[in-house]
Structure formats: structure tokens, C-alpha cells
Amino acid sequence: MKQNKYDDSEFFEKYSQLPRSLGGLDAAGEWSTFRGLLPELRDQRVLDLGCGFGWHCRYVRERQARSVIGVEISENMLERAKAMTVDPQIEYRHLAIEDIDFAEEEFDVVISSLALHYVECFDTICRKVYHCLAPGGTFVFSVEHPIFTALAAQDWCYSPDGEKVHWPVDNYHKEGLRQSNFLEKNVVKYHRSVATQVNALIDSGFRLTRLSELQPSQEMLDNNPAWQEEFRRPMFLLISAVKS
């Protein structure tokens, strides 16, 4: 299933008002951790899977990447990305992540931010990314943490007075489709365990170099006290891997 909620005008309008949509990378709490997983970008050929508004594409060019291709299924997203970009070395392509078919060793770095949990066949994407990466190339991505995606409700258990008592985890090893509610719309996500994701990378030939479950920093807490909840359960999983 290739999902494209962002070309629903009502959904896109609500998404466009989110802090990370308005403020870019600095408004994304996981950005500092994601940035820390990136390799040296100077003169690198970069692919961004699910590029959205193009924030990451523009960032890697600011770091002197040689070229960037951002792929995105949503025409609304691409229209916004193009309007915000003035750089001939950034190319945006209207393409589902599942449909990528790049040449062998075409890129030095592949990144993806909070997009791969919308893709059903993660192992297939790993193999495609491995194919299009040069030897020694880096794959860095973030997804919603499996503890967060295990139950479709993606919400706390509350006490009678509304206190957040605990985060429920159930059917963790029952992987597959979850229909959750995001911005008042039904959105399909795919739950897979940490082990499944790590083993898919290893089976594709990658060597893992770093894994983060995003423990909040003091700076994050100072900017937004709500991040305190991330000490109770992780929301994000970030992985960096290298093509052996």
C-alpha cells in the first residue's frame, strides 16, 4: 500500500500548521540526534527518502553536499519544497519510496526522516538502499519507535482524574498494519520490532554504527517541558548503518 494522506487538502492544511512544519529542523525534537548520526557531507551525493518540505535536502546542501535528490509521493509536499528551494543541485522527484530504482552506487548517503514506518516492506527498502549506495556509504533514518507503534491507539492509559498512568504495549511481536488517528484522519502505519529492523539491515549487508532511542537532552527539556514524557517511553528510533 502506497499511502498519500498529504494530498488531502484538509489533512495537509493541518499538517502545515504543526511546529515542525513551520519551524523546520530546529522545531523537530529529534533533529539534533539525527544530525549527530550523519557523516561528513561535503562533496557527497545524497538521497532523501520521503523528503517532505525539503528541510533535510537544504540542510545537506548547506553542509556542501555535491547534490541531493529528494523523493516524495505527495504533490502538495513537493510543491512546498520547490517553493522553498533555490538551488540547482537539489532535485525533487514525485515518487513513492517503494518505487525507487536508482543505479548501483549512485549515492554516498541516504537519509529518511519519519517516513519508513509508512512503508510496508522495510526489508525491500533496505536492499534497494544498499544497492544504490557506494561502498562505505551511510544510511541514516528515523522512525516511530516500535513501543510507540505497537498499539494503534498510540496513547497513554489514564487514571479517572486524567493523569497519564502508563504507556500500554501489547502485540509487540504481532507485526504489520496499524490504523492510527493523526490530525483527525485514519493513517496507516506499519509496526515492526527493533529486532526486525536491525536484522533487515544486517541481512541486506549493512553494518550498524549507531542506534538511538532518543533520550531527551536538557536543552530539549528547557525548550519544551513536554519532552519529559520521553523518559517514560521512547517515541523515536534512529539508526545509522554503513554499506560494508
Rank of each mutant, 00 (worst) to 15 (best):
F231Q: 13
S212R: 01
L214C: 03
Y118Q: 14
G23Q: 05
Y6G: 15
G36C: 09
R93E: 04
P39E: 07
P19K: 02
E10S: 15
Q197T: 14
Y190D: 10
E98V: 10
Q3S: 02
G24S: 12
V165A: 07
N4K: 09
E144H: 07
G136F: 08
E13W: 10
L25W: 05
M235Q: 08
E13Y: 11
L221F: 10
R178Q: 14
L214Y: 03
Y190I: 13
S159F: 04
H117A: 10
E98P: 06
M220T: 06
W31G: 00
A103Y: 09
R207G: 14
N199Y: 03
T85I: 03
G23F: 00
H191Y: 09
P39F: 07
E184M: 14
K174H: 06
T124A: 11
N76H: 07
N76D: 07
I125W: 04
R42I: 13
F11E: 10
M1S: 15
S204P: 08
G29M: 06
T85F: 01
G54E: 05
E91T: 09
Q17Y: 12
A27W: 02
A81V: 11
A81P: 00
T149P: 07
E175V: 06
Q44H: 11
R232W: 07
E91I: 06
L49H: 15
Y118C: 15
Y130W: 09
R233M: 03
L208C: 13
G36L: 06
Q44W: 02
Q215I: 04
R45M: 11
W227A: 03
S32N: 09
P160T: 10
K174G: 00
P19W: 00
R192Q: 00
L133F: 11
P234M: 12
N171Y: 14
K243A: 07
D155N: 08
Q215T: 02
K82Q: 07
D7F: 12
T196F: 01
I90D: 11
T33W: 05
V242Q: 10
E175H: 02
S159D: 04
A115Y: 06
R127G: 12
D7V: 14
V198A: 05
K14Q: 15
S180M: 15
F139G: 06
Q154E: 15
V242A: 10
N199W: 05
V110S: 06
S217F: 04
R20V: 11
E184D: 15
V110M: 10
D222F: 08
A81H: 03
A200N: 01
S74W: 15
Y15P: 13
F231G: 15
K2R: 11
D108Q: 01
S244Y: 06
P225S: 08
S112G: 07
P160C: 09
S113G: 10
N4H: 11
E144K: 04
C126N: 04
C132N: 01
K82S: 09
V60W: 03
L201F: 04
